[in-house]
Each structure stands twice: as C-alpha cells, then as structure tokens.
Design a protein around this nucleic acid. Structure first.
Lengths: 210, 210
DNA sequence: CCTAACTTGTGAACAAATTCACAAGCTTCC
DNA sequence: GGAAGCTTGTGAATTTGTTCACAAGTTAGG
C-alpha cells in the first residue's frame, strides 16, 4: 500500500465524525460535497482521500452513510477495542483517565501509572494508580497497545524508551518536549505551549494564516 | 510578508525550546545542523525556516544562542504577556488553569468560565469560576486575547461564535468537533480522539507512517 | 596575506499534496 | 430506451513545501 499522508488520516477522522452526525440525523446517503462543506475542504479532496483505500460510493448517488462509516472505522482501526494506559497521574492524566469520550470510540483506559509513592495505590477514575516500575512488565505481557504520556518533559524520553523496550508501538505524548522513537513506533505529540505559540504568531504577524 | 506555513511556525517553536535548553547548558553559539539534529529535520530546513524572517546567523560561525532565541521569541509574539481565559471548568479546564507551564511562556490565565451554577463562584487554580454569561462582556472590555475552550462538543460552536462576536482573534479548542471561524480569527484544535485514531490507523495499517 | 575549514543564506531542483477537469456510471423521467 | 441530471473516481495540472548545492562570508593558522 502507498504511504498515506498524516493529513489524509486526520481528514478521515473528521469525515467519520461527520458521518456519525449525519447518521444520527437519519440521512442514509451523503456526497463528497456534503462532507467537504462540513469539513471546510473540497469535494475533490474528499474523493481523493477515500480513493487511497478503494471506491465506496456510487456515481450519481453518493455514499451510503452506514457503509462509508463502517469502512472508515475499519480503515482507522476502530473495529476492535484498544487497551490504553496512562502514564503520569497528574491533573491531566487524571482528567484523561476519567474522560468518557475515549470509551465511546473503543479506547479502554485500563491502567494508570505514576512514580510518586504518595499517589501509588490511590484511585483515579475508577482505576488504582500503579507503581511505574511495573509498567514495562505489564506492557510486555500484552496488557496495553497504546500508552498516553502525561509526565513532565524531563522524564518523557526515559519513559518512551521503557515502553518501546517493552514492545509498545503507539504513543501519544502530552509532554512539552521533542521525543524520539524507532521508526516502527508511531508517536504523536500534543504540545499545548506550541499550539498557543501558533496563536500568538498569528496575532503578532496578522497574516490570517490557517 | 509572505504567507508562512503552519509547519514552519511549529518548527520555530521547536527550535526555540532547543535554544533554551542549549542556553541553559551554557553554550553561546549553535548551528543549523545542531538544531536540525535535535529536531529531527535537516539543516537546510532550519535555515530556510529562519530565512523567511531575516538572517540571524554569521557565515562560518553559526548563530548566537541568546540572539536567535530572542529573535524567535519576538517572531512568535512571546515578547509580551498574553491574557488567556479558559472556558469550561471541567477536569481538563481545571487542569489547564493550574498548569504552571503556561506562565513560564508568558501566558497568564486570568479567568475561568462555566455555565454550571454548581461550579460558578467556586475556585480553581486560584481563580474564581465566573458565569459564562459574563464572558462576552469581559472579552469586549479587553480582558483577554486568547480563549482556551474545554467544553463539550455540543456547546463549542456556540461559544466560538460568542467570543468571536466579542472581538477575540485567537482560540485554542479541545472540543472534539470541527469548528468554524471567520478568516481573521485563528483557531487551533486539539482533538484527542483524532490523535488516538492516527495511532490506531498506524497500528492497523502497519505503514510505519510518521 | 593567503589558504583551509566552517557555516550561512538562497535560487534551483525536486517531491508531496491539492485542485482541476472530465469520462464513466447510476437514476429518473418521459 | 434515450436524454438529462447527478456524483464518483482519477489522471493531469498546479501549488505548496522540502531538499540540494553552492557562492559568499567568517575565522584561524601559518
């Protein structure tokens, strides 16, 4: 299969959420133009994105909402449930552990880890906080497929190395630092400071950039 | 000024954080190659990114760390402080209100808003939660330059419309939904579900995408 | 003062992503 | 069953972003 751009994958997620809205409203079919308008893109872009994976529409008619929706779920790997651990039981970690939106999408947070003895053993979002020294073993036994890191920048790379060593292939980091992983491990980073800087850049340079 | 790509702005943020690390370690000069290695890019990319804004280095020598650092801060609009409000005093909003990392970068969270009567008047992160019905007026009087939205998807667009009407030009949203703003308002969205879907796509399609 | 060793800044070449534009398929209606 | 009206799927054209490659500064050493 051809390499798929990250921007394409992001748009697929967007299309899927629109399809779910459309489905909830009871419509049975939709068109690339509908999806484009909702997502602020063009119908050609929508069709091109989908074309990487096959052809799901009917010429003259559009797309069947339930069908496209389920094909997209399949493409995005949302057919089955995913076991997720949260590393770092600070405020953000605790908020995520409790966040119901994950479960709706098939992400099951089944473990929370921290290194602070004061937190270990306490409960958050219905889960008992485990000692981070157990993390590597737990991953190695297949307990998790995805790790979400909400730890300070200083510890982040070390934890990445640990979970990678244990065999994990997907990491979502909220640590405000640049991390490195081997090429077979997928890493996404959400850096709030960086997002805010994108805003202040726009405010300062008034270049209506988007 | 030429339009600057969002990818360029993100890299500038990364370079800045490296410069601060380098500065903390006491080095006085650095090179495009150093920055490239730290950031997983190429030295040509670094130089090209900087060239959009001027020429800050000395041929044969590299860049003065304090100088480049302060020029980048200026470019990113970090010279002055920014007043930020958080809309939505749920778990994530409360976590952000308390997050010290913002202040370090010059982002002052000076207000938290919610619509839930049970929360209004309570305190979070040293701030009293205000009734969201005051938000529009507060923005209009210049209290804030940036709004951070941590509200449910259903309410997000309505709140965006409100803050835009009040004259705000920069919004960071954590709501898991697609939002629209006029072209002169900069919007950045962090969507956790979408990030996780990017991971499961990679796990499912095994295309070592990055 | 000349040469060697660096490193920047930048047009030009290249690659990637997006948009265009249109043939091809499906449906409806007469 | 043919024409009209849609909408998809996709090569080709275009635009945007990245990498190359090298002239032009700068410093150090003899």
């Amino acid at each position: 299969m051809k390499r798929i751009a990250e921007s394409t994958v992001r748009r697929l997620s967007i299309y899927l959420s629109f399809l779910e809205e459309i489905e909830a409203r009871g419509a049975l079919t939709t068109s690339s133009d509908d999806l484009a308008k909702l997502g602020g893109t063009t119908s050609a872009q929508v069709r091109k994105d989908l074309s990487f994976f096959g052809s799901f529409g009917k010429r003259g008619l559009g797309y069947s909402v339930p069908e496209l929706s389920s094909r997209l779920k399949e493409i995005l790997g949302l057919g089955n449930q995913w076991r997720v651990c949260i590393v770092g039981a600070g405020k953000i970690g605790a908020a995520l552990a409790r966040y119901a939106g994950f479960a709706e999408r098939g992400f099951l947070v089944t473990g929370v880890y921290d290194s602070d003895p004061a937190k270990i053993g306490k409960s958050t979002g219905g889960l008992t906080i485990r000692d981070i020294s157990h993390l590597e073993r737990d991953i190695a036994t297949g307990k998790y497929q995805i790790a979400v890191l909400t730890v300070p920048a200083e510890n982040a790379q070390h934890i990445v190395d640990t979970v990678v060593r244990a065999g994990l292939k997907a990491i979502l980091s909220f640590a405000p630092t640049q991390l490195t992983t081997p090429p077979d491990v997928t890493l996404r980073t959400v850096n709030m400071a960086m997002e805010l800087e994108g805003l202040t850049f726009a405010l300062t340079n008034r270049t209506t950039e988007r």
